[in-house]
Measured scan of single mutants.
Amino acid sequence: PDDLEKRARELLKRGKNPDEIREYLRNAGYDQSQAEEALKRAL
């Protein structure tokens, strides 16, 4: 898994919901489609 996916998994483990994770990834400078893909793979 790429770093983005790892980060998404990490956040899920900490109890973040998908919307929070999307926002976090966007704020971290990733584009929307990258964030969506990583989140899908992590779920």
Results as ranks from 00 to 15, higher is better:
residue 7 R to N: 07
residue 2 D to N: 12
residue 23 E to I: 06
residue 26 R to F: 10
residue 3 D to R: 07
residue 16 K to Y: 15
residue 28 A to G: 06
residue 33 S to W: 13
residue 42 A to V: 14
residue 10 E to W: 03
residue 5 E to P: 05
residue 15 G to A: 02
residue 22 R to I: 15
residue 33 S to E: 14
residue 22 R to Q: 06
residue 22 R to W: 09
residue 18 P to M: 10
residue 5 E to R: 07
residue 41 R to S: 08
residue 26 R to C: 11
residue 38 A to F: 10
residue 43 L to H: 04
residue 25 L to M: 10
residue 24 Y to K: 04
residue 6 K to P: 03
residue 19 D to I: 06
residue 1 P to T: 12
residue 5 E to Q: 10
residue 12 L to I: 12
residue 28 A to T: 05
residue 34 Q to Y: 07
residue 30 Y to N: 03
residue 42 A to W: 05
residue 36 E to R: 03
residue 19 D to A: 09
residue 21 I to T: 02
residue 5 E to L: 15
residue 41 R to K: 13
residue 18 P to I: 12
residue 29 G to S: 02
residue 17 N to F: 07
residue 40 K to C: 12
residue 2 D to C: 10
residue 14 R to I: 14
residue 20 E to P: 00
residue 41 R to N: 10
residue 24 Y to D: 09
residue 22 R to S: 05
residue 38 A to G: 05
residue 3 D to P: 07
residue 25 L to K: 00
residue 7 R to I: 15
residue 10 E to R: 04
residue 36 E to S: 04
residue 24 Y to P: 00
residue 21 I to Q: 00
residue 15 G to K: 02
residue 40 K to I: 12
residue 9 R to A: 10
residue 20 E to M: 05
residue 14 R to G: 14
residue 37 E to H: 07
residue 12 L to M: 06
residue 32 Q to Y: 12
residue 40 K to S: 11
residue 42 A to D: 01
residue 36 E to Q: 05
residue 5 E to I: 15
residue 11 L to D: 05
residue 12 L to K: 04
residue 20 E to N: 03
residue 9 R to W: 05
residue 3 D to C: 08
residue 21 I to P: 00
residue 3 D to M: 11
residue 20 E to Q: 09
residue 30 Y to M: 08
residue 19 D to P: 03
residue 13 K to L: 13
residue 1 P to Y: 13
residue 24 Y to F: 13
residue 36 E to L: 04
residue 11 L to V: 01
residue 25 L to R: 00
residue 23 E to D: 12
residue 2 D to Q: 11
residue 11 L to P: 00
residue 17 N to P: 06
residue 34 Q to N: 06
residue 19 D to Q: 09
residue 8 A to E: 00
residue 14 R to P: 01
residue 13 K to Y: 07
residue 9 R to K: 12
residue 28 A to P: 01
residue 38 A to E: 02
residue 2 D to A: 12
residue 40 K to M: 13
residue 31 D to Q: 07
residue 25 L to P: 00
residue 2 D to E: 12
residue 36 E to F: 03
residue 5 E to H: 12
residue 7 R to L: 15
residue 16 K to Q: 08
residue 43 L to G: 05
residue 14 R to D: 15
residue 32 Q to G: 10
residue 14 R to A: 15
residue 25 L to S: 00
residue 14 R to F: 10
residue 7 R to P: 01
residue 19 D to K: 08
residue 25 L to Q: 00
